[in-house]
Amino acid sequence: MTFTPEQDDLRAGVRKLLDREAEPWPALCAQIGIAALLVPERFGGFATELTTPPAHSGQAPGLTEAQIVAEELGRHLADVPFLGSSVLAVTSLLTTIDTSTNTAPDALSRLLPPLATGSAGALAWTSDGRWDTHQPAFTTDGSTVDGIAHYVLDAAGADLLLAAARTPDGPALFEVDPAHSGVRCAPVPTMDETCHLATVTLDHVRARPLGPVDLARVRDVACAVLAAEQAGAAAQALDLTVEYTQQRVQFGRPIGSFQALKHRMADLHVQVETARSAAYAAPRSSRLAAVAKVHCSEVFTKVAAEMIQLHGGIAITWDHPAHRYLKRAHATAQLFGAPHHHLSRVHP
């Protein structure tokens, strides 16, 4: 894929800031504006306005830029709420816009500007980890929402909580006050300490209806951005492995000079490049979003496992980052549906 000079500058800026900042989220939002990439200009963001309905659920202005940011965040295993807030929450709100008339609910003028500046939002959606686009976690009577959602990204401490609920006309989006007494948010322990998941319970909580939500589009955008994050993390894991094999000496030679290891790393390089290609092709169709989710999950898991193997004993120490890449690989493989859940979309 060919990137514009502006996109190359975005990548360089994000990478430089991540190298410099220990807590990068405030600077990423204030200096680069990554939280505003998918937010339309009329709501304080950088995305151009849609003048016609998108050709399919995955296309969205600013999505390539969001993938570029995600790829760099993946390389650094950055602990930021970009995916949960700037992608999931923002995209779910955008799907309530009537694209035939470009009419947005009044609430978006209140909800999107804070998200564009880095305020944290969360979307509670799945009840079983399959991220079913027709059967979200919650039920509603029109004014209250009830149920339990699992695996909610960045819900703890979120300023805005969105809930997808079942209605006779299809899934709808509701705004919930996170401080309401009927809202319970329980963090879920995970191997990856940078992946913040929670179980959100709503006990007949009064909620503000925002309109119908296109969860299929939300899932495709989320898979496209996550695939770019996985590709970036896999590329960095491979780079670290290649660097190590050039330094580790065995039998008087760097182990990277052994032909068997050269072949293994060459195979990994090909897989990483195909994963990156799949990730940036994902916005073209819902099927390609599914392909990217399956392929990037499998490639990242394989590269992370080979990273452990090729580093030897040092890779299983707490101080070495190899274990963090393996944990992130396993966590993201299950996010938004395990790979085998998406195969039916690849081979209908």
Rank of each mutant, 00 (worst) to 15 (best):
D128H: 01
P61S: 14
A47P: 03
T91N: 10
R110K: 05
D132S: 04
E72Y: 03
R42C: 15
T48V: 08
G13Q: 09
A89H: 11
P53G: 12
L10P: 11
L38A: 11
V90G: 14
S85Q: 03
A30C: 07
W131D: 14
F3Q: 14
D98E: 09
T96P: 04
G45P: 14
A78Y: 03
T4Q: 00
L83M: 10
P40F: 00
L18V: 09
S100G: 07
H56W: 12
T126M: 06
P105S: 07
G74W: 03
F82W: 03
E71I: 05
D146S: 11
D146L: 01
P136V: 15
A30P: 10
V14N: 06
P81W: 01
V69W: 03
S100C: 04
P61M: 13
G74Y: 09
F82Q: 00
A78P: 02
A27T: 03
E71S: 15
G129E: 03
A120R: 14
A104S: 00
D132Q: 06
A124E: 08
A104I: 02
G33E: 09
T139L: 12
A27L: 02
A12Y: 02
H76N: 10
W131C: 10
E41K: 06
E49W: 00
S100F: 07
S100M: 04
A116Y: 00
R130Y: 09
L112N: 00
E41S: 12
I68D: 10
Q7K: 10
T91V: 14
Q59I: 08
V39R: 10
A120V: 15
L10Y: 08
A124G: 01
Q67G: 01
V145W: 07
R130Q: 10
E72V: 10
E23C: 11
T139F: 08
T139C: 12
L17W: 05
L88I: 04
S119G: 12
T4D: 03
S92I: 09
V39S: 13
T126E: 03
A30T: 12
Q7A: 11
Q7W: 08
T140M: 06
I148S: 13
L112C: 00
V14Y: 04
G121F: 00
A35W: 05
L77G: 08
G129C: 09
D9R: 12
D9P: 07
G84M: 12
A30N: 12
Q135M: 14
G84N: 07
P53I: 08
A78G: 10
L50R: 06
L93S: 13
A22I: 04
E21T: 11
H56P: 11
L17Q: 06
C29F: 01
T103V: 11
V90L: 15
P113V: 05
A120N: 13
I68F: 02
S143I: 13
V80R: 01
E6K: 12
L73M: 06
S119I: 12
L17C: 15
E72K: 04
L88P: 05
I32S: 11
G147R: 07
V69E: 05
P54G: 09
P113N: 05
S92E: 05
F3E: 15
L115P: 01
T64I: 12
G74D: 14
G121Y: 03
A22H: 06
G44D: 04
D128T: 02
T51A: 11
L111G: 07
Q59C: 06
G129D: 02
I34P: 13
L112F: 00
T101I: 09
